[in-house]
């Protein structure tokens, strides 16, 4: 395996860490978790449910904002600022550059999510709730959030290869929202009498990633366990989509004239 993507990934991570916007996002995410503590304190008897719910939602939303807003600029910024010109004169293939950029952002998301997870743990500890075995479902829910973020990043990167950040953001958000409600859309199609709508909603269901399956926040908040099979299923599902998107991104980007 080439070491080139690793070199690019570390630099992408360094860029994100030195970007003040990122700190703001982490700050607001921690603020949300702080708010969860306050809300939890006034929710007598259901502190855990409220704190876990709000905390995981904050991790998910702020992670999503990071994945989309940094992801759509990953390639675009390098072309616009022409930093890519000197980089591609080095012995690095375009796909290695893409994979490196992707890996760098994933690393950033993982580390930020780890910080926010620590914040959530502090919040739970603060309300005096001992950690129990079923809390493993919180970690699994966070893992699912990370898988979803990795998938969103791959979608953002894909659009970033041929579109402006504004359009890429719109497209990525549209796919994310459609993916959240993919099953509902398919069920809605099944209720109609139009065969065209039935086919279209069915195609849409299979085409867009089903983000709903990555959402285990409510399950974790209620302290229920998450089946291990779902962990495997979600992991394979996300990896497959990510691989497809990275291959498609590489194919497009490798043929692109950098003006």
């Amino acid at each position: 395996m080439s070491a080139m993507p690793g070199v690019v990934a570390i630099n992408t991570f360094r860029e994100a860490v030195r970007d003040r916007v990122l700190y703001n996002l982490v700050f607001f995410a921690l603020l949300m978790i702080g708010a969860a503590i306050i809300v939890g304190q006034i929710s007598i008897g259901i502190e855990r449910l409220v704190i876990v719910n709000l905390g995981l939602t904050a991790i998910s939303i702020f992670g999503l904002v990071m994945a989309i807003f940094i992801g759509v600029g990953l390639v675009y910024k390098e072309i616009e600022k022409r930093t890519l010109y000197s980089l591609l004169s080095k012995p690095i293939r375009r796909w290695e550059f893409l994979v490196g950029k992707y890996a760098g952002l994933i690393l950033t998301l993982v580390i930020n999510t780890a910080f926010m997870t620590a914040g959530l743990a502090v919040a739970l500890f603060y309300v005096g709730r001992p950690f129990v075995r079923s809390d493993a479902s919180i970690l699994i829910a966070i893992y699912f959030i990370l898988l979803a973020l990795a998938l969103v990043t791959a979608i953002a990167l894909f659009f970033s290869c041929f579109s402006s950040p504004m359009l890429s953001t719109l497209f990525t958000l549209a796919i994310y929202v459609t993916g959240l409600f993919a099953a509902d859309i398919r069920d809605f199609g099944a209720l109609t009498h139009s065969s065209f709508i039935k086919t279209a909603t069915s195609v849409l269901y299979y085409l867009v990633p089903n983000f709903h399956d990555f959402n285990s926040i409510a399950v974790a908040a209620h302290g229920e366990s998450i089946p291990f099979a779902l962990v495997w299923q979600n992991t394979l599902y996300a990896l497959m989509y990510i691989a497809l998107l990275l291959v498609a991104s590489s194919a497009i980007f490798s043929r692109r004239n950098l003006k």
Binding site: N11, R14, E15, R18, D19, K81, R82, T83, Y85, S86, S89, K90, P91, I92
Partner: peptide, 16 residues
């Protein structure tokens, strides 16, 4: 590319 170097026109680099 191991054996070449390139200075683009109006170069711009990672300013961070």
């Amino acid at each position: 590319h191991r054996d070449i170097g390139y200075l683009p026109e109006h170069p711009y680099f990672y300013d961070y």
